[in-house]
Amino acid sequence: MSGLTLRLRDASGVPVDVSHLTPERLEGLDTAAIAELMVWQGAERLPLREVFTVDGTPGDTLTVETESTGLWGVGHGMTRGTIRVTGPAGQYAGRRMRGGLLEIHGDAGDHAGNGMRGGRIIIDGNAGDYLGAARPGEKYGMEGGLVLVRGNAGDRVGERMRRGSVLIEGDAGSWVAARMRAGTIGILGTTGSGLGWAMRRGTILLREQPAALSPLFRDNGEQRLSILALMARAWRELDGPFAALNPERVQRWLGDRSVQGVGEILLLKD
């Protein structure tokens, strides 16, 4: 495989800020120059060569190999190219991403996709809490792009989310889509309490009956919605169960009516 490979030397879990290591920011640098870039590891600012082993030549793809959960901000603000993480991606993976592809062959930590506006994150393992969510004090969570989680996700998926899609093949925790403004969250597994709390707009697509649905979501009966065909067609290129989805009939709840919300919870009926 062509491109640059960085292998994290330290496996202890000390945070390593890699938010400045994106394909476009490394463009034009040779391997020697990259090895001399400075990287924060914990409270120390070190040359990259002391934190990572460096292989290959810089290109459109950057591979980061790690056994530590310490990576921080991988893919921050990236606009193009591919970053492939082998192992756990740590916190804030894909934060403020604008384009390109972030592949995580492992778990992602908390706050993945925070402030994301474009591009695609594929997480082969599980995602932590606050996936695509706003941090405290931020007006919006995710504002575009697509995140696919092949495993499970933690609590507060898509909190204050405004645009884009979060697709979870497994289960999600509590407070999914809390205070959501718009966008799409698809979950094929189970969901916890607080689903759609204070949600104003947007779509939650479920395959499993929600464990606890607020009475402030009003049942609008079984529907056939053409928009689902458009969404499903966009998911065809994804590998896995979302690609195979052919949603026709859904049960539709609208809420959260406590905030005059018209967000929709759709339960697949086929």
Binding site: G144, R163, G164, A182, T184, R201, T203, I227, L230, M231, A234, V262, E264
Partner: peptide, 13 residues
């Protein structure tokens, strides 16, 4: 006010 938009693949419907 009951209308909703959905952006699919960068296209707004």
């Amino acid at each position: 006010g009951y209308q909703a938009s959905k952006v699919v693949d960068g296209v707004r419907y």
